[in-house]
Amino acid sequence: MSNGLVALSSVAVLAVYTAGYQRTRSAAQQFDGEALERRAAAPVAMHPAAAIVPPPSPVEARASADAVPGKLPAPAPLPSRDQRPANPSSQTPSKPREVAEARDARPAASSSVATGDVATPAAPAESQPAVAPLAATSQPGTDVIASEGSHRTELAAPPIPKVQYKDGTYTGWGTSRHGDIQASVVIEGGRIMSATIAQCLTRYSCSWIAPLPPEVVARQSAEVDYVSGATESTNAFYYGVLEALGKAK
């Protein structure tokens, strides 16, 4: 078989993009609300994992929702995801995307032939026609529904809380084999205004790492635009930023 996985990946990308996470999200939030009501009525945990483990505060990811450590001044506040229309294409120039999708539709078609001989349990060939209907028929979406015979148990979709940070400047340390990096994060109006390196105790001079933020990993070498393969100092800075954000809660 040739080119099978490449084509399959294009199909998957197209399918997920077409389904759109906004649609997914609004459905998930609605479901969350319903699930909360159910939980209030019957406080017995339906989900074993939920009973054992308190949900960790997903600070960091959500934290960065408002992170604009770019070199440009922070743009005017964007409408929050929740306020955006469910239709993902309504805010983007639709023309280029249609072109792009048309381009990707071809490998999709060929892949059903190419993968026909692969006995994946998923039977990808069968699911491919689902790509278009996926968007049109609006999948039950997102909400995790376990069904066992006729008995159906509904589980809430993962909640995605927004974290509000307290204004101020916070620091955090990240470590790498080459030494420690201290990140400094400035919060204004609950938003991350900048994330920079305050100091570094590494074998290398601070001057090499200093240019990293706000561009962090971009332009990390004079000769190339980007580098493939994670670098230690990037990871150290990441952990430093997370520690700093933890203090801003």
Partner: peptide, 15 residues
């Protein structure tokens, strides 16, 4: 137990 998932997770697992 069959668990219904979002298109995102379904496609990712299928791939």
């Amino acid at each position: 137990v069959p668990v219904a998932v979002s298109p995102l997770v379904y496609e990712a697992v299928q791939f």
